[in-house]
Design a protein around this nucleic acid. Structure first.
Lengths: 235, 235
DNA sequence: ACAGTATTTATCCAACGGGTTAATTTGTCG
DNA sequence: CGACAAATTAACCCGTTGGATAAATACTGT
């Protein structure tokens, strides 16, 4: 319904315009929140006139909801391509962590948008019909991995897939979303490449150890983080 | 310097006024963010006149920073009283999780304030001298626990205390801070008492298992969450 | 080419919000 | 009591902002 070829090509690009507006709005809302966002700035950034926002999308809140829905759709779509079924459970979990982490890094606006929406206590999301539907498949995907892991003996416990996903998202989300304040507080640049690598290793080790009962080497210690041999270490 | 007895007691309560303003501002900033907060509402909520905010604290941003600093001071102060030194390491960690979790539940504004500040990329926090100093002792407290745990053999790995704390905070913070959107998405009321109990059990189990290598029974399954026997289960 | 419609622009405005000015009240001290 | 300062209030200022109006412009089917 979106990009049917036979769409009329107006002056510039009527469909492209809407996309540019949504993209600009995403940046703006992510950078300043809902209240802090400026409609004029969105228009300017989209190379459009303010009136066009109202023409193409609606008022500020409609625009915001459209951006939010788009953001959810995007991440859930990518997750659908994860293909965890073909991996053995521990690797599947690791892959899920890896994906989530890198998705958040690649799409920092997503984090900000979620925070903004939670500040509004999901007021807008509740009114969205689109969003609610697209999550059960994802939960089922994780549930399958967990079940398989328990059956194969790889996992020592049968975690609630929702809890597990929330935990994985939490570990990634909080670190990145709060990296600014945490960096100040702890006096480290948490966004430096080394720090990020270390963090990913730590998260994978934490979750894998908890699920499999086998503690992984290098639990948040040292830079390399991937190739390590020992299972324990001196001090 | 604050509450010297010989302070003159003006009309109502000059010192109390400042506190009421800060409290009202905390609520307002937490509820609406920095941009969404309204100075008039803060004044009204504090039972004061708008002009008095400027008289007692300064402009909107000064007020905001004062609130933020106060929030950090409060949690760090309570953490100082945790007394983890006298517990054996696994219990100390559990206590830290328990405290963090309940502190966040008791002080939801704290979460919102942090999100707000991170939206501003810690712009204000960076200018604060007070805040930076009060965190190293806290990190050292955790480091001691970890070291003791490794030495005693309770912990199988020597985690970086900063990573560990970030992870613990993450597990608690994300769940609560994002409970609104997550509840919509997963179609559960994550703030219901049962759900919260389950979450706490899950987090404790996750971290304990990762640190000690011994998986805890009932990993985010079932309501009681504390007393459980089996380590595995059928399907 | 013409009528009709979709899209875009230029312009305006009423409400709002942060901040300030100046007057007023309330207490302290000699 | 009377002067002086601290604290509080009321009223206003002025740039900003979301949103609206109406006119112009570009495309389409006939």
């Amino acid at each position: 319904m979106a990009k049917t070829k036979k769409i009329l090509k107006w002056q510039r690009d009527p469909e492209g315009m809407r996309l540019r507006i949504l993209e600009a709005a995403k940046q703006e809302f992510a950078a300043h929140g809902l209240a802090g966002a400026r409609v004029d700035r969105i228009a300017a950034k989209a190379g459009a006139n303010k009136r066009m926002l109202y023409y193409h999308v609606g008022n500020k809140e409609d625009l915001y909801l459209a951006v939010l829905e788009g953001a959810y759709e995007k991440i859930r779509a990518e997750e659908r391509g994860l293909d965890l079924e073909h991996l053995d459970p521990p690797d599947a979990i690791e892959r899920l962590i890896d994906f989530t982490w890198n998705y958040f890094i690649r799409n920092p606006e997503f984090l900000a948008l979620l925070n903004t929406e939670n500040l509004a206590r999901a007021k807008h999301l509740k009114r969205s019909t689109k969003v609610k539907s697209m999550h059960s498949p994802f939960v089922e995907m994780i549930r399958t991995v967990v079940t398989r892991g328990v059956e194969s003996g790889d996992f020592v416990v049968a975690v609630d897939p929702v809890q597990l996903y929330i935990s994985i998202a939490a570990l990634c989300f909080f670190y990145l979303s709060n990296s600014a304040t945490l960096s100040v507080i702890f006096g480290r640049d948490l966004l430096a490449k080394e720090a990020k690598d270390e963090r990913l290793a730590h998260m994978v080790a934490l979750v894998r150890a908890a699920l499999t009962g086998k503690s992984i080497a290098s639990f948040g210690k040292g830079k390399p983080a991937r190739a390590r041999a020992a299972a324990k270490q001196p001090a």
